[in-house]
């Protein structure tokens, strides 16, 4: 039986992890490769690297990070952040990443999804969606530029369009819940999950193991992503998986 996936997310800036793991015996907690290995031993099913570098040099450094990670890790990983062209995708995937994630660039030019999907196959292309509930619109709207700019897309319609263009997976972040640690946005996740036929990764709001159970079991989403609760050791991937197993969720 296909298992539900737990995915830690690492923010990488100029080749270094920001918000690195606290209180862990790592030689260098800012080294993305060291942290990737740590999460692998914890039982992480996949990893996401989000490149938040501001400079060209930082992006070049990310290619080295990808190469080193692929050389030492035997689990899949996705790279997002700053991927604007098919050439950007090629650079990251050829360095050994399994998938690339696009967000703002895909909203600015949706054909990017199709170009990537035609070239590498849908399974390589993740479309990340940042959504916030809008009272005015009565639904979740999509935002770009890390949540700064509101678009005219609803989360559900954009997810459907992304899949039509060739997205193989949707990484759905609730901006309302992000950082709140009060649980994933169950309604948003369900709405998007029911609207598309590709796997959906829920993101934003994880505070404890029960939150993972809720979104993976009740919503039946395919995967759940978290950053800070793993980095700050509020819980661990191993603890979350052990809890899920006890509750009858199929995990690796």
């Amino acid at each position: 039986m296909l298992t539900k996936r737990i995915i830690p997310c690492l923010d990488v800036k100029e080749g270094r992890v920001v918000k690195g793991i606290q209180f862990v015996e790592l030689r260098d907690a800012g080294d993305p490769v060291e942290l990737a290995k740590f999460y692998d031993t914890q039982g992480a099913d996949e990893l996401v690297f989000l490149d938040i570098s501001a400079s060209h040099e930082g992006r070049e450094t990310m290619v080295d990070v990808v190469r080193q990670t692929a050389a030492s890790l035997a689990i899949p990983f996705t790279v997002g952040g700053g991927i604007r062209t098919l050439d950007d995708m090629k650079r990251i995937l050829r360095a050994g990443a399994d998938k690339v994630s696009v967000n703002t660039s895909a909203l600015e030019r949706p054909e990017l999804i199709k170009e990537g999907s035609d070239y590498f196959g849908a399974q390589c292309i993740v479309v990340a969606i940042d959504a916030r509930y809008s009272e005015e619109d009565g639904t979740w709207m999509v935002y770009t530029h890390g949540g700064r700019n509101k678009t005219t897309w609803t989360a559900v319609e954009w997810a459907k369009e992304a899949v039509r263009l060739g997205a193989g997976e949707i990484l759905l972040t609730s901006m309302n819940q992000d950082g709140e640690k009060s649980g994933f946005d169950v309604k948003l996740t369900k709405a998007v999950r029911d609207a598309v036929t590709v796997p959906v990764i829920a993101s934003g709001g994880a505070g404890n193991a029960e939150h993972f159970r809720e979104v993976l079991q009740d919503v039946d989403t395919d995967a759940a992503l978290a950053a800070s609760i793993f980095h700050y050791k509020e819980t661990s991937v191993a603890e979350v998986k052990s809890y899920l197993r006890d509750k009858g969720v199929c995990v690796r």
Partner: peptide, 11 residues
């Protein structure tokens, strides 16, 4: 099947 691709860890 409910999801395509078949993506993730299966036994």
């Amino acid at each position: 099947v409910s999801r395509i691709p078949h993506m993730g860890w299966n036994d």
